[in-house]
Amino acid sequence: MKVILIGFGIIGKGVINVIRKKREYLKNKYGMDLKVVAICDRSGAAIDDNGLDLELALKVKEETGKISKYPEKGTSMPIVEVVKSIEADAIIEATPTNIESGEPAKTYIIEGFKSGKHVITANKGPLALYFNELLSYAKKHNRIFRYEASVGGAMPIINLAKETLAGNEIIKIKGILNGTTNYILTKMEREKLDFDTVLKEAQELGIAETNPHQDISGLDTAAKIVILANSIMNMEVTIKDVNIEGITKITPEALSMANKGGYTIKLIGEVSENKLEVGPKLIPLDDPLNVKGSLNVAMLNTDLAKEVIVVGRGAGDVETSSAILSDIINIYLKNK
């Protein structure tokens, strides 16, 4: 199987590391010879139809910051041209999320389908804004579209709902879908520290981004809720339809108050037929949704299996790459 990787940042490098680590495993278990025939970043691309030397690609990126500096095979060819002209079975789209326009990821995904490639993405932006449009391209070109890594990182939720729980009607999904806010609220609760202090510490530790707006305002969770609503519950909604409240007003006193009543406070995203909401909620201390640190958790209410709960790591390069790898394997097995 030949793949093109678009985006060589934290997630892209994580994907390459996971492929390196699992190469023999994939051969032995699935008979799959996985070749990365192109890696793209802002500088251009490295292209080799026989498969790139992944260790060398990582070294070049580490030393120069530019994949186009890859010896002999490096090029300044624009990403869209790589997607259109290089022969491959699938593209792995791992560029940074743009929640306002979904670009440039949206273009790469569409061009991928148009050029006959399956698409795997970890990118919330285009999914939250243009899910049905992207899906229509996949259908039109008879290609597979997989996006497990876009919600909950390593925590399996989309494929769990669509495949493992096939036959069940999903009535409601609620959960913690943002690890940064969970880390902040957990730390505030345990150490009685105020929001700004914990946010600063989380930024220093690399848990929160330098610009944490999308996380703490609830926008990131809202994007994920929209993806779940559209992909699992067949709704046609966008991020504008979500009622959003973030966690910036939460105080340590409020957390203590909640604790006295047998609750904690968590930023919960919820989707059901009548509700599309993100906001802080009181969660009973003994509830399965009360997971600590930067963990993610989701509860799916179904008609047959009733409540199903998944917990997992919602971020991290290797963790997110594990979801991407599961999508690669799924596509390979479906086309074997």
Binding site: E245, K249, A254, I265, P280, K281, L282, I283
Partner: peptide, 13 residues
Amino acid sequence: LSKEKNLLFIKSF
């Protein structure tokens, strides 16, 4: 009340 008084009500389910 939330809008009028700028209060955040955090509810249980």
